[in-house]
Simulated assay, not measured.
Amino acid sequence: MLKVSLPYKQVDGLEIYFDAYYPSFNLKDDEKVAESGVEGSDTRHLPAVVFFHGGGLTVGDRESWFPQWMHKRFSALGYLFISADYRLLIPSTGHDILADIQDLWAFITHPKLEIDFPSSESSFIKCQIERNAIAVAGVSAGGLCAYLCAMHCIEPRPNAILSLYGMGGDFMTPHYLTPKSKPFFQGRDLLDPLDPTLRPFVNSSDTPGVFSSLQVITGSPLSYHPPTHAVPGYPANPRMLLARLYLQLGTWLDYYLDEHNPSISEALHAILSNTEGSADELDDGLANKLKSVIPARHLSLFPQYAESLKDWPPTLLLHGTEDTAVSINESRNLFRLLTPARRTVDVDRLIEVPGAEHSFDLVPDTEEKYGELFDEVVGFINLAVSQKHER
């Protein structure tokens, strides 16, 4: 496997990277050409998939929850596979993450970008990305990143969007806005907001300005306690618990938008508290009232309010019906919004996986369980990219 890591931007002296994986398709022949040393003969023009990792926007990096099944299939079809870092919530915000997505897109679609993959100590395979043959994919919070790319990256636009149990299809729900008093995520115990390891990341009235001391980060690797720990396998990196904690407190949107005092989540919860279901099940008056609470400067971070839905590329949403981290109703709502915006039918697909939980595609026997489904998913995206590229 050939891989290179490249910075695509710098923020306050901090470089933000992406990894590019050269496709397995015809790799041996390409290496032979590169080693031949024939000037210019080894440049390849390749389609690409840009992947965003999950983690609630609070944890993870470009190697976290890496979808081997997705990489393997696109690589075999001749795609470059790009996995990107982005700034994480606390102290960064959703606006910072959106800026990273836009800057990444500008970098990889630059007509003069050339990526060199070392095939030996003295030779390289040179390639350029086909600007009009790029799909965007993401899992969980990475699905939200893919949606933001569809909303804001328009020159050129992505050719297809692939979201697995993606966040952002509907933020106006009790899942985001209601404090929890009993386990809600895979039956796991509720977290203690006063836990000293979590305390630095929690906004409260007695810790004003606490986030100003936190360092901007673009990646936070997964880490677990060893078997000798009191709770073997429990997350050793406290950031791994933050998204769940914010959902537990009903304040995730406060951190996403940096709207804590007053809390935008509390204002929305006050409106929603006497209503069951999600915004798509509410009457138009109440749904508009919820939207009106969000300052106009933040609407660009809400896929459900995107004015560009009619211009989105073909979109495939894949979601388990028993997901307790990101409700399947989010994908259902986004699919509902996409459908009337289209001029033709069957542009988009929503595939529901019966009985599947969050991250169902990362289980040990994933190929045995879902291999045919993965073939179907990648086939849909490849067809969308190919058809757009041919026009």
Score class of each variant (00 low, 15 high):
103 D>T: 13
204 S>Q: 13
151 M>Q: 08
291 K>S: 05
389 H>Q: 07
130 E>P: 11
7 P>N: 12
104 L>K: 00
193 P>G: 10
79 Y>N: 14
208 P>C: 14
258 D>H: 11
384 A>T: 02
27 L>C: 04
147 Y>N: 11
24 S>N: 15
57 L>S: 11
302 F>N: 03
318 L>S: 03
382 N>K: 00
265 S>N: 04
59 V>T: 10
32 K>G: 10
123 S>Q: 09
238 P>Q: 05
365 D>I: 03
45 H>V: 09
174 P>R: 06
279 A>I: 02
27 L>R: 12
289 K>I: 05
293 V>W: 00
95 H>Y: 00
372 E>V: 06
246 Y>M: 03
372 E>R: 08
18 F>A: 01
60 G>A: 03
280 D>L: 08
51 F>S: 08
356 A>Y: 00
317 L>A: 07
283 D>T: 02
50 V>R: 10
115 I>R: 07
204 S>W: 13
231 V>K: 11
109 T>S: 06
330 E>T: 15
106 A>L: 07
286 L>D: 00
312 W>L: 06
336 R>T: 14
1 M>A: 15
268 L>E: 05
161 I>K: 01
299 L>N: 11
239 R>F: 04
82 I>Y: 10
67 P>M: 06
306 A>E: 01
298 H>I: 00
272 L>G: 04
317 L>I: 07
198 L>M: 14
361 D>H: 04
89 L>S: 02
97 I>M: 01
143 G>A: 04
273 S>D: 13
177 L>G: 04
9 K>C: 15
152 H>G: 08
16 I>D: 13
236 A>P: 02
151 M>H: 10
274 N>I: 06
24 S>I: 08
212 S>D: 15
266 E>N: 12
98 L>Y: 03
